[in-house]
């Protein structure tokens, strides 16, 4: 089976949250970029499928500025992905426009054999959750987001997965090629071994240059402001002598002060 995983470099959890000098985006000066969250699960799921179906190949693709994008591609290689493709992005792109990202990634994915394109359900920073279906649309493949319990039936060559709705869990089956946004992998993401980390540092990355991409309309959605909420000042403590007194006080506050009592 030919699997492509698309991942996005996101600033790690220790990145200090503050606006960049222009006030438009998160200040990424000095930030460390990592493979994280749903993307990490997508890579894990791809590797689980590779383990389950002998002869499979997992290719990882990422779109973004070179330095940080290389980091996540190497992290994915260290985990066991077979090849990595860096899709160059325009130097000033905020890549807030999902069309641009989807089209750039689609251009790279089209060059690779693929039965399954796996993406995290949403990125760890902007959390928009649109890319899986946008990418599917750009590729002309069926696409679903929020997939769980993904399996591959090798005899029928069918992917089976759950897709959550408000009322329950839909069961779907789909032959490849298909794009899936993954809610959860079959197990916790593995940790790369030291030797594989060192090997991944020396691996050659494939590149798709700007010249090979369709014109990207970066003006469509642009970042205008990045704001932090006023710091929460800590809880207002409810003082009480009996549980009943605590309950009465809390209900009154929710009603009269916070005005959220139903």
């Amino acid at each position: 089976m030919e699997i492509v995983v698309c991942v996005k470099p996101v600033p790690d959890a220790e990145t200090k949250l503050r606006p960049a000098p222009d006030g438009r985006t998160l200040d990424l000066e000095g930030a460390k970029f990592v493979l994280a969250g749903y993307d990490e699960s997508a890579v894990e799921q791809a590797l689980l499928l590779k383990d389950a179906v002998p002869g499979s190949t997992v290719r990882v693709v990422s779109f973004g500025p070179p330095g940080r994008t290389e980091e996540v591609l190497r992290a994915a290689l260290a985990l066991g992905c077979d090849t990595a493709t860096l899709v160059e992005s325009p130097p000033l792109a905020h890549s807030a426009d999902v069309r641009s990202v989807a089209r750039a990634l689609a251009a790279a994915v089209k060059k690779l054999p693929h039965d399954l394109v796996l993406v995290g359900k949403q990125s760890g920073d902007s959390e928009a959750g649109m890319l899986p279906t946008a990418l599917a649309q750009a590729l002309g493949h069926p696409g679903f987001n929020g997939a769980v319990e993904l399996k591959f039936d090798p005899t029928q060559k069918l992917f089976t997965f759950g897709r959550a709705s408000e009322a329950g869990l839909e069961r779907w089956e789909c032959p490849g090629p298909v794009v899936l946004g993954l809610q959860q992998a079959g197990n916790d993401p593995r940790t790369a071994k030291l030797q594989n980390i060192l090997k991944s540092r020396r691996a050659t990355l494939d590149k798709v240059s700007l010249a090979e991409l369709p014109t990207l309309d970066v003006a469509g959605a642009t970042a205008e402001a990045f704001q932090l909420p006023p710091p929460r000042t800590g809880a207002k403590w409810i003082e009480y002598k009996t549980p009943e007194e605590a309950a009465t006080k809390l209900v009154r506050l929710l009603k009269e002060e916070a005005k959220v009592f139903p």
Binding site: T191, A192, L194, I197, L198, R201
Partner: peptide, 14 residues
């Protein structure tokens, strides 16, 4: 070096 940083990060995470 980048190698050293990534090896250190593995140990740090562990």
């Amino acid at each position: 070096t980048d190698d050293q940083t990534s090896v250190r990060d593995l140990a740090r995470k562990f």
